[in-house]
């Protein structure tokens, strides 16, 4: 009786353990898929500043710029290799980080507005 109980307890513990392992692995797989798809970072444009003005990102991440100012702005790579286009008030634009992406950028309309991204990991 005791042995049967112990066996059943062992079996049920084993089933639970397997279930937990399977679920955990699925969760981890899901998390890794999400990681592979990339994180999303938000940069606010307000009072003629990019906030934050320095941002660490990974290849595959997405950066979204939102303009909160009355006047239009852009986020444009120093070498012009990427550009959000004109962002009017409350408009936003997103770009996916690629390997070798030019890190420094500015606003084409207000060249004193400057910021940068820092690509980390992946090597």
């Amino acid at each position: 009786m005791t042995a049967g109980f112990t066996r059943r307890a062992f079996l049920s513990k084993t089933v639970v353990a397997i279930a937990v392992t399977v679920l955990s692995s699925r969760f981890l797989t899901y998390t890794e898929d999400a990681r592979a798809a990339g994180d999303t970072h938000v940069i606010d444009i307000k009072a003629f500043k990019f906030v934050p003005d320095t941002l660490k990102v990974r290849v595959g991440d997405t950066i979204t710029w939102t303009n909160h100012d009355i006047v239009p702005h852009t986020a444009t790579a120093d070498d012009k290799s990427w550009d959000t286009g004109t962002l009017k008030r409350n408009e936003r634009a997103s770009l996916t980080v690629t390997a070798g992406m030019a890190p420094r950028y500015y606003c084409r309309f207000h060249p004193q507005m400057r910021a940068q991204i820092e690509i980390v990991g992946g090597d």
Partner: peptide, 15 residues
């Protein structure tokens, strides 16, 4: 808000 814009213009004009 306008003041911030005009000060930015002042810097841009100085450039």
């Amino acid at each position: 808000a306008g003041s911030k814009i005009f000060h930015a213009h002042e810097k841009h004009a100085a450039m």
